Amino acid sequence: MGEKAKVYFTDFRTKVDVPLTAKLQKLIRKAGIGSIDMGGKFVAIKMHFGELGNLAFLRPNYAKAVADVVKENGGMPFLTDCNTLYPGSRKDALEHLTCAELNGFNSITTGCHVIIADGLRGTDEVEVPIRNGEYLKTALIGEAVMDADVFISLTHFKGHEAAGFGGTIKNIGMGCGSRAGKMQQHNDGKPHVIEEKCRKCHRCARECGSDAIDYERGVAHINQDICKGCGRCIGACAFDAIENDNANANEVLGCKMAEYTQAVCDGRPCFHISLIQDVSPNCDCHGENDAPILPDVGMLASFDPVALDQACVDLCEQQTPIRNSQLGDNLARPDWHHYHEHFKDSNPNVAWKETLEHAEKIGLGTREYELITM
């Protein structure tokens, strides 16, 4: 058994006149961010700016708190993300920057610039070797991410309709992939509709990330030639009418995300921050956010992305589900098959353990950690 990783934690309680942003800064200093040589270096802060209509994403105040600490240490920070694979409000750099500004991210509110890492059309990418890669040998990463000397992830920890939860590995692995890189991660599974279960509610079509669902035959139909395999329709369907043709597609997706994270982090200084708040059942890529499934928990930081995700999962599993939520509704159903895992009980088709197991296997980090409460 190797050495346990250190994960630093603090809750959202604070004293009068002490902002939570100051508490976050104290946490990341305690976790050792100051040990990274940032003097005169470009520092990428990878985060999610939220889809238009979504209000669960991290506030820009937290980004500014991290950027200010980077500047204190002599670094030159910038906020970054890559364009999306699906057609939303972040599919090219112009729309992405507009979305970021509308959601409050600009050089005034955050103290640093926003750069879309894979460029105007999502094609500015670098092919990066994946150390110990089993599913992939190289990753297609947004160029600005790889140009940075230091990499910091700032993650909103929440549920996810395919990956189980959206944590540090999801933020880095999928988030730093160019559009082609995202396609490379998603292409192991395309769902289909079980026609006798379809209720014709059209929610899957509204959630589709590639306009691949129509109702020409009276029930939902997925055009396999257009479908990108993002899995959003599976999470959207309340009637279990959509399933994946590849039974282990979500497991493979998680493993590929771990390998992409390895490509991003390998060989340079990295630091990771995760906030468990507004724990929505689905990704911030949605143009809405349903009620939180769990209470707000706290803020965490570590040099180890695997340990950080594992600690976040463990803390979430200790929480009592919120009754008026997707998770609470599922658990209240008399016919519900209880998985006794909050994220799987919220979105039954997900897989997340395989992601952390594979991440540990390829040397990205360890699931063994010491939680240091501040």
Rank of each mutant, 00 (worst) to 15 (best):
F303W: 05
E127Y: 06
P77Q: 01
D314I: 14
D68G: 05
C265I: 12
S274L: 03
R232F: 02
L275Q: 00
H342E: 07
F343N: 04
D278K: 15
G40D: 12
C270N: 15
C270I: 03
V16K: 13
F42S: 14
D245G: 05
S210V: 00
L356Q: 02
A63Q: 08
N282G: 04
T109G: 14
P129Q: 13
N244A: 04
G267D: 12
H286F: 12
I36M: 04
R323V: 11
L24V: 00
P321C: 07
V7R: 09
M47I: 04
A93C: 10
T261Y: 00
E357N: 15
P292E: 03
P281W: 00
V313T: 13
R206P: 00
G133K: 10
A22W: 00
P281N: 08
P348N: 06
C285T: 12
M76A: 10
K361H: 13
K23W: 01
A148Q: 05
H338F: 07
F78E: 09
R268Y: 08
K361N: 12
E72D: 13
A236P: 05
C176E: 05
E288R: 14
Q326H: 15
P292I: 01
Q277E: 09
E216I: 03
N54I: 12
N246G: 00
V252C: 01
